[in-house]
Design a protein around this nucleic acid. Sequence first.
DNA 1: ATTAAATGGCAACACTCAAAGACGTGGCAG
DNA 2: CTGCCACGTCTTTGAGTGTTGCCATTTAAT
Lengths: 325, 325
Amino acid sequence: MATLKDVAAECGLTVTTVSRVLNNRGYISDETRKKVYAAMDKLNYRPNEVARSLSKKTTNTIGVIVPHIRHPYFADMISNIENAASKKGYKIMLCNAKGRNNKEKEYLDMCTSNRVAGIILFSAGVAVQEFTDSNIALVTVERFIENGTAAVECDNRQGGELAAKHLIESGCKRLLMVSGVSENSMPADDRALGFEDVCKQNGVFYKIIQTSIGQYDSLDYHELLEGTLELDEEIDGVFASSDLIAAQVLQVCEKFGRKVPKDLKLVGFDDVMISQLTNPPISTIHQPIKEMAETAVDMVIAASEGKTVPKRTLLPVSLVKREST
Amino acid sequence: MATLKDVAAECGLTVTTVSRVLNNRGYISDETRKKVYAAMDKLNYRPNEVARSLSKKTTNTIGVIVPHIRHPYFADMISNIENAASKKGYKIMLCNAKGRNNKEKEYLDMCTSNRVAGIILFSAGVAVQEFTDSNIALVTVERFIENGTAAVECDNRQGGELAAKHLIESGCKRLLMVSGVSENSMPADDRALGFEDVCKQNGVFYKIIQTSIGQYDSLDYHELLEGTLELDEEIDGVFASSDLIAAQVLQVCEKFGRKVPKDLKLVGFDDVMISQLTNPPISTIHQPIKEMAETAVDMVIAASEGKTVPKRTLLPVSLVKREST
DNA sequence: ATTAAATGGCAACACTCAAAGACGTGGCAG
DNA sequence: CTGCCACGTCTTTGAGTGTTGCCATTTAAT
């Protein structure tokens, strides 16, 4: 593959000069510029980003570490992050931590080794707490971390409140919340808090069930759901902490012959594609995924350029009413 | 950030020696090795992959270009590719071409500039035809390209056959196929061919409808579907060329009061998560996504190492019977 | 003398960047 | 009108970026 040197030789100039037309820097005569472009074209020259990065001591890539790629929420996030990054001339290095702490640590190291400009971290592990490489901007999404550069979150508590309010206003008397993860300080936790609050305020009976960590991906909420719904036939409103769980609630309802929304009303969380593809389509709490992604990207880039960024950003959620309520 | 030089200075050796313990190459005394490790630890040294890549003239990253990240099929693919790559010490650079040719070209260039070891391309554009940078391995998935290094596909024709056979064996008399894309030489095309064949062989009436290019992502098959199903009430079997479309068929059936599978049987394609989350869960043609991903990764890596790889690999599909048939 | 073990020196990788140099032009004193 | 300098424009020189890999050197053992 042709290098700057080859291009320079081709048109009888030095690498520096060629480098300068490439980067639009300093004084260059029109004639030289033309010559250089011609030579580049002729040799099919493609700048070597690796060398460029070494020289500039930074890359234009952002490491993105997620616990699962297949989960529609993360797929959506990744898509939006890639978009935002691409617009700003950055590329994405995708890492799938799969909920395992050692993988997460490994990926953090890998990103460091590759001298990424910054890291966007969705992962939930604890290993990050040790990550203190201050050279690399670290913004977390949906998770606050002490030694991170910045965190962007959606208002999970508000989401829980909205869901509870909506169910209660729709006439539900006996609520169930199905929470994905039980770990502390996880987003689902705040959702539960908001949900609880509103239920208490309104004197409405509620119950919260949750599964163990790292269930993002799995489809086996059925057992848990069946147990609960069978045991308590009076439940007439369910708040699922993700649309994926909500879809499964729908399936279990079908199995038990409970009509949604007639017998039981359902609110999901995330507002990902699947909530529109079920029968009935699921009312859900919309996460501003695009805005979150864009904010995260803006922040890593800003931070990597040495600018100061807000330590914590909270984005509002909203209720999307569809046909399950 | 600490460099080899710093580590060398720290323990009174030269960079060469340190480099050698880092890479387990040549003769090193145990004592030296220990000293070096200690120094690395102390300085929190992380090898600079950028410099390494420059020196070795190749990276350990694979460029992955997809038309859409959010589509569950691609999300699944990406996840499996990342997995396979990670196992072999490679990282993923994710590119979202969004069905636009110029984006695709741009990403191809970007990958070249970043000197990726190879590219896995799902994208469907035509710009690729010009891509002839023989230095970079190019394996396409679900799309054969003349100047590519290798192609891996699933047996789409077989998929169409399986679907038609299954519907006919289930007693359907009047079939409809909903095809995602109408462009030539696209996978959906082969699916239609297989489907057609079996219908003809069995003398079963069938109809094929399709939408324009680049609909991977959209949820607006409703109109098209409603029109067709309303017009022809006799249709009792539908083959959708993706599970996403199948889910929408389910919705339209619900709207028209057609019971699935009683009044109408439905077969999807892909076997992605959503086919398990609908009511009823959708019978579908299983694509060996994991195997395809692994094959693609193995091939780019092999090709990037100069090994010869098969020009074209065809993986079998299978029918997964669920409750929509 | 030969060989093995351990380490060092140095060019190369493709690029950037600061500083210095070359060249032509215009102003101004002699 | 000439000679000199300063200045703006354009280009080159050369050092630096962190590694690798080849070759050389040293020491000790055979």
